[in-house]
Nucleic acid binder design. Sequence first.
DNA 1: ATCAGAACTTGACGGCCGTCAAGAAATTCA
DNA 2: TGAATTTCTTGACGGCCGTCAAGTTCTGAT
Lengths: 221, 221
Amino acid sequence: MAEHECVRLVPIFSELGSEQLDTIESIVRHHHYPAGSTLFGADDPLDSLMIVANGQVKVYQLAANGREQLLYLLQTGDIDGEAALFENQRRTSFGEALVPTDVCSIRRSDFQDLMQKYPSISINVLNVFGKRLSQLERQTTSTATESVEARLANYITETAAALKTDTFKLPLKKKDLATFLGTTPESISRKLALFERQGLITQKPGKVIEINDADQLLLTE
Amino acid sequence: MAEHECVRLVPIFSELGSEQLDTIESIVRHHHYPAGSTLFGADDPLDSLMIVANGQVKVYQLAANGREQLLYLLQTGDIDGEAALFENQRRTSFGEALVPTDVCSIRRSDFQDLMQKYPSISINVLNVFGKRLSQLERQTTSTATESVEARLANYITETAAALKTDTFKLPLKKKDLATFLGTTPESISRKLALFERQGLITQKPGKVIEINDADQLLLTE
DNA sequence: ATCAGAACTTGACGGCCGTCAAGAAATTCA
DNA sequence: TGAATTTCTTGACGGCCGTCAAGTTCTGAT
C-alpha cells in the first residue's frame, strides 16, 4: 500500500497541501481486516476516527432486544466515528468488513488537534455529519411512517438513481437489506415477488434487479 | 430583549470572548413567533442557522405519504439547521413553535465565515451534531426493531431520568408523542393504560405520570 | 363559571407483517 | 466440479397495532 494513499483519498482533507498531508500521514495508523471480520475493540480502540481506505464496511447497531440494525454501508473514502470526536459518548454501534478492507485510524486527541490547526477539516467533517443526519432523519421518518412495501420500493429506486442504471445488483444480502429497512428477509422476498407480478421489476439470477416502471414503483404505498 | 442575550446563551459560542460575541451579535437577526406558528420560509430563508433564544420548537419531517414525524423538540439554547451549513441540501423538515418563541438566525455565509475565523465554533457544532446523530441512530434502531410498547416504556424512563424525578408531566400532546414514537395517539393511550394495570406507572390528571417500577418498565418488550 | 372545541379513551375490526417451517436455489470451498 | 453450507423462497398462521367510531374528559376563551 502506497504511503499517503489513505489521507489523500479522503474528502475531509481535500483542502490541505502536500506537507500538511505528510504531517497527518505520520499520525495515522493502518490496519487491514479480512472479509467478515469485526472492526472493533481489539487493537483499535473506540476513541478513534476511522477512514475506510479500501473496501466496504457495514455499521450496525444493537437494539435492546438483541436485534441488529444496519445503519450505514461505508465505502472507500468514507469516515466513521462520531464517538471519536467527543468524550462521554458511548459507542453502541460496531463495524464489520463486507470484503477485505483497509482502514486508517486517527486518535481522538490527534484529530482534535488537527481540527484546531486546520479549520477546513472541521467544516468538511460538518458536511459529512450533516449529510448523514439528513439521511438518518429520512430513514427514521421512513421506517416510522411508511409500509415495508413503500420502503423497499423507495430503496430500489434510490439505489438505481445513485448508480444511474435501471439494472443493478443488490449490494447486500437480503438479511442485511432487511435489517437496514427494518423488516425481515422473508418480507423482502415476498415484496420483490409482488413487484415482479405487478410488472414493476424483473428479477434475474445473482440478486440482479431490472426496473421496468420506476414511476409506478414510487407510487407504492 | 437585552442585546447579546441570544449569542451568549448558546453553548456553541461558549469559548468566545466578549468582543467576539459583539461581532457575532451584529450579524444576528432576531425573530419572534407566537405559539403555534410555523418557523419556515416567510422572512426566514432556509439557508440560515437558527438559535432558539427562548421557547420551544417542534421540528417535523413530512413523509412521502403525507404523515409527519416529530424529529426533535428544541429547547432554549438549541440550534437547528444542518441545511444552513451546506449547499445542495434540500430541507425536508419544518419547525413549529410550541410556545411563544424567540429565535435568532445567522445566514449560512456569515456562519461559515465565523467557523473559519473561530475554529472552536465548528468543534462545538460538531459536538451538537454528534449527539444528534447518536440520538437519531438510536431512534432509528428503536422504531425499526422494537414494539410500540417497548418504545413508550423507554421514552418514559428516559424522560424521567433526564428530569431526575419519578413524577413528571408529559411535555407533549399525545398526538405529538405519537408521531415522535412512530405510532398513534390511540396506541399510546392503550399502552399507558396497560402499564397502569400492570402497576408500573400511575396516571394523574394533566398528563402527569408517576413511575412505580422503572426496572420492570425497562424489561418491557 | 360556562360552553365550545380539542384532546383523549375505549371498543371492535381488519390487515400488514413477523414467525416458524420446509423445500429450492445459490454460493463457497476443497 | 461436486458437495456442504448458507441463502432464499413460499406457505400457513397469528398477533400487534393502525383505523374508524362514539363517548368522555380536558382546556381555554368569553
